[in-house]
Amino acid sequence: MNAFSSLFLLLILAVTGMPLQADEDISPPLTISDPYIEMRTGPGNRYPIFNVEDRGKTIRILQRKTNWFQVQSENGKQGWVHKQQMQNTLLPSGSQLQFSEQDRSAFEQRKWEIGALTGEIKNAPLLSVYGGYAFTKNISLELELEHSVGNVSSSDLARLSLLMQPFPEWKYSPFFTLGAGAIQVKPNATLIDPADRNNALSQVGFGLKTYLARRFVLRLQLNQLVIFSANNEEDQNEELTEWKIGFAIFF
């Protein structure tokens, strides 16, 4: 198992290790104010409606999956109701139930972003994962781990970059990055005299982010890398171009 693979595994474990919500029944009774609400057998609009609750009846929320809420009616029936209908139920105070929208404005307010990208670096396919923290709407810091597999070698790359997003409110919001990191190139085992090579690198890039839905962002990026490979044998630094496309989830 290589380092990248174990990091990947660590990421899975880190996410699953996040504190779990205590699943006590804490929802207050919600009064239906639509003429009726439809309860489905599963979380999705392709599941059949098996029960309808009239206006004035109350329901309680048990859990949520994506935009669907599992609710329990007064007579104990459990089913799934869409967020749109839940928004028209009333709290005991008489006010409407409010959900914070996971929409474009939430995206602009985001603090954390994790994502995965794929593309090409010097014609070799690559896969990368990254995590970012936004200090302001415009500036965030990102750590990215990237793995690429070429014909004669594979490489692992880690970099820290500063990302500048001048127009966060645009639908297709451009950004610029400036970063530094290190690359490890491993020649294939079938080659003669394979020796690993470690070098520092710097990077400039630009790209676009666009909000898709819920917590989802699409990201496109083009980078120019300089690998500081100059040594006694070769006195040229290596320059590479890479492009990437992928998605991110923000919190």
Binding site: T16, K65, Q98
Partner: peptide
Amino acid sequence: EATIDSNDF
């Protein structure tokens, strides 16, 4: 809203 047990993972 955060008190709702959300199961998206």
